[in-house]
Design a protein around this nucleic acid. Sequence first.
DNA 1: TGCTCCATGTAACACGTTACATGATTGC
DNA 2: GCAATCATGTAACGTGTTACATGGAGCA
Lengths: 187, 187
Amino acid sequence: MSLPHAVLTSLLEKTTSGYDLARRFDKSIGYFWHATHQQIYRELARMEAAGWIEGFVPPDAGKTRKKHYRVLPAGRRELARWAAEPTPPMDLRDAFTVKLRADAVLDEVDLAPELQRHLSLHMQQLAHYRHIEAHDFAPGRPLTRAQAIQHMILKKGILYEEGEITWGREMLALLQSPAPLGAPHRA
Amino acid sequence: MSLPHAVLTSLLEKTTSGYDLARRFDKSIGYFWHATHQQIYRELARMEAAGWIEGFVPPDAGKTRKKHYRVLPAGRRELARWAAEPTPPMDLRDAFTVKLRADAVLDEVDLAPELQRHLSLHMQQLAHYRHIEAHDFAPGRPLTRAQAIQHMILKKGILYEEGEITWGREMLALLQSPAPLGAPHRA
DNA sequence: TGCTCCATGTAACACGTTACATGATTGC
DNA sequence: GCAATCATGTAACGTGTTACATGGAGCA
């Protein structure tokens, strides 16, 4: 159960609304812990009931329904408690790898186009990460501890995308290679 | 929805029982798509109801409750259909990265021991993959298409673990580094 | 006899996904 | 006036997790 903790973290970084949280999830913490806006609204309601956060109408609300949330001491304590607790390493849920195994056993699907598509998505994401890196972490500039951690998180994303791309290219070559002469690959 | 397809793939590789499937998941396809035995029993029941697979009592069952499943043509078709359909690239769900961000904002937790623990788990897993590679994919030996795919899947696991280890070591160094003199890292 | 492993399940619940509803504000 | 975007939600359903139940087989 990490979604509430991801939300708490995001709220500590910046007190804001459910809507904004959902949008920020899509392009920062969500790269490592995805959530839809419905999940976020649900968690906000639960955490408010639990006394971890508090909702309030922001000064600039005007006539809108906008509601902001701030983290209460109990929420901060809960986040620290969870962070100190051991959790198992991430487990993968990679549908494409399952498809590859299906291909190996069926030998009647062509996964090349799908892999091509994933490859270009990974290249886009990598370009995006590199852009952020160039903008926020220019070399030589001294970093606070918090910034150094943020940079390492970004680097993890970069490393991941690079790995996907390197592997994907080799895999694509294999999927596109013709059956060797004299050794037909279809049994 | 990929679990039924992972199960179909596994059953095509080898007709077997729910119990054995659950155990094989733990150490092969499950590295890329984890499932508990309850999920597997549930999916088997659903797929049998859907006419994708068929249960039968194996010859060596004796007085046990053991039941094997084989894939029916409809199941094979469904697997091929799903494999040909596009799916989004895997999304990550990495609790440790969330904890890092929590650390960056709270600055009152020590994630070094947890990272150390993850590092040694990743090293174990890498050693395990390398062992399989040395055993099943000795260099120079010619491979069928299916074997070449299996090898690439294994390489993906290896690349992933290597990435985690490389990154983890750098991260550990940062977590263990003392606050720079004259620039206290706690605000 | 009691322990562990084989083997299959039920039940309850937590979490994630998809579809839909509602209404205000902003820009053309 | 209309469409897009802001903003918050409800409802239904599907998937994943945890706890528990049941009983046979093999072994000390």
